[in-house]
Design a protein around this nucleic acid. Structure first.
Lengths: 329, 329
DNA sequence: TTGAAAGCGGTACCAG
DNA sequence: CTGGTACCGCTTTCAA
């Protein structure tokens, strides 16, 4: 491995000088700068980030904590983040928390030990105080925080939108699936939908659930049609759950959207592929990731934050699990 | 930040001793070991990985290079890897290459500069010589290599299987979509299918393509039905492409699987959600990730490799885009 | 069984 | 403008 000392010797200068040209700090005569640059190229030298990091107490690494990369919503976030930070010369350490406090702690420690310059977290942590001792900036993604900069979609509005659209399209006996209590975005949507439903003249039934996984959702789906067979509209916690509902409806030979409307949440890439193609409330995942990364970049560069909270709009994506409504009906 | 010196002072020993208890190396009297452990806990000390890494020239980081985390096949790989390496105390630095040589190089440098202990790559790099100068072990995933340990599914066999199944189920005029030439696994499948088709009595048409993205695939799909409208069986490069084909078939009101059979490749999670549910050749992605990580762990621990090449079997997943065949027909 | 001290490969202060 | 050198926090000889 070629070190800064090798370069210095070869170029006939001191390590201090090499360091200066490397970082473009202090004064270096143009001649020597060029000479050093050449030896660097000649020796194919690239500075040891670890050594640099030890002294400066900062790496070029950024921690990214996600609930589960296998959930199709998160790769989009991750990619938005990567594209942004990569262009600033930063790289990502990735962790999956599975919404478990213990794993989250593990990664917080990893990030600290490796001198990350900042982190982005999209995981639960009802206990925000976990983040208090940290020596680097934190951005919350997909969930809001009063204390920390955060980027999130307007879940409450999304929930309202879902309820409004399903009512507007004629459902009268609506099932509202309440997501896990510890998943904050799911609760916000739930509250949004609830606020609309409670003021509407539709009957509705709230189903408590404790996960957003497909296999679990299949059970909820069965339960819904058993307990509330006359339901003609289902607002699901997310697109995965909605898809499970769709499957069960198909199995029971319910006609979607004529007898039953279904609305999801997220607009994950595969939602357009389901049958019927899923109507859903879209969160701009890639954009959210990108914005979170931008916010973090600003924190790192100590630039003032114009706004700490970035709330991105959600939109209703009309596909085929909801009925058409005549605009001038 | 509390350092090893703080612990040493507090415990009334030298830093050398603290280091010894930290790493369980050398002799330490039980009394002092306990005392040191207690102060560590009391001070909530956790060693600085960067400093450690500088001296040992090894971090606890592993590089993971993927083509694109947004492609649903890869999160599964990533998760398999993460679960395995996490249990050994390692963490991941994640990079997307987009199959671009330049980005790949960037990450190779990042990994080197950060002293990763090893890396797993699932990206193209026709230029395997890129990896030759590396000072840490490399495992190839989803593609095979003669020189490096690698984990991959049997693409050639998978291609054969797809062709056999579609023929067995009655397609006579088959379209074979040839994936991008620089994506090796796609080419292996292609060759596998080709070998079967060329020996069968089916007519077939080969469509050249240069990407595996959905939006591009929609164009190929249109092209297929234009150029070869009488086709009654399509073997797609992967599930994404197959889904695009399905969409176009639906638009043209082709009846699947009665008039047209479609087979995909990968069995990404959403394939069961498509309509009709996609028949496909399954690659055990999570398992592949896990195996690759195991292999890397062995390389890192310098344990002998029983086998350098791990080839995992592919299986035909029969769903609804292929016809049923009576077993004793 | 323990401690002193020499690095690991950079950065940055201070002197010249 | 340039060089010498003291760190950054940890590991590992070598002596005691």
């Amino acid at each position: 491995m070629v070190t800064i000392r090798d370069v210095a010797k070869e170029a006939g200068v001191s390590v201090a000088t090499v360091s200066r040209v490397l970082n473009s700090t202090g004064y270096v005569k143009e001649d020597t700068r060029v000479r050093v640059m050449n030896t660097i190229k000649k020796l194919n030298y690239s500075p040891n980030e670890v050594a640099r990091s030890l002294y400066t107490r900062e790496s070029r690494l950024i921690g990214l904590l996600l609930p589960d990369i296998t959930n199709p919503f998160f790769p989009q976030l991750a990619r938005g983040i990567e594209d942004e930070v990569h262009s600033h010369g930063f790289r990502l350490i990735l962790g999956n928390s599975d919404e478990q406090l213990e794993k989250e702690l593990t990664y917080l420690q990893t990030f600290t030990q490796n001198h990350v310059v900042g982190m982005i977290t999209a995981t639960t942590s009802l206990a925000q105080k976990l983040y208090e001792g940290l020596t680097f900036p934190v951005v919350f993604l997909d969930r809001s925080s009063d204390q920390y900069p955060s980027v999130y979609a307007d879940g409450f509005e999304g929930g309202k939108l879902a309820a409004e659209e399903i009512i507007k399209r004629g459902s009268k006996r609506i099932t509202l699936i309440k997501g896990p209590v510890n998943v904050k975005p799911a609760q916000e949507r739930f509250q949004g939908s609830l606020s609309v439903l409670s003021q509407s003249d539709a009957d509705f039934y709230v189903l408590n659930t404790n996960s957003l996984a497909f296999d679990d959702a299949q059970k909820w789906a069965k339960e819904i049609f058993q307990k509330y067979p006359e339901t003609d509209g289902i607002i699901a916690s997310n697109d995965i759950v909605a898809t499970a509902v769709l499957h069960e409806a198909f199995r029971l030979e319910k006609s979607v959207p004529d007898d039953l409307q279904v609305i999801g949440f997220d607009d994950i890439p595969q939602s357009r592929f389901s049958f019927p193609a899923l109507s859903t409330i879209r969160q701009p995942a890639y954009e959210m990731g990108k914005q979170a990364a931008c916010l973090l970049m600003k924190c790192i560069k100590k630039e003032p934050l114009i706004q700490k909270q970035v709330q991105l709009p959600v939109t209703f994506i009309e596909r085929n699990t909801t009925r058409k409504v005549e605009e001038h009906g």
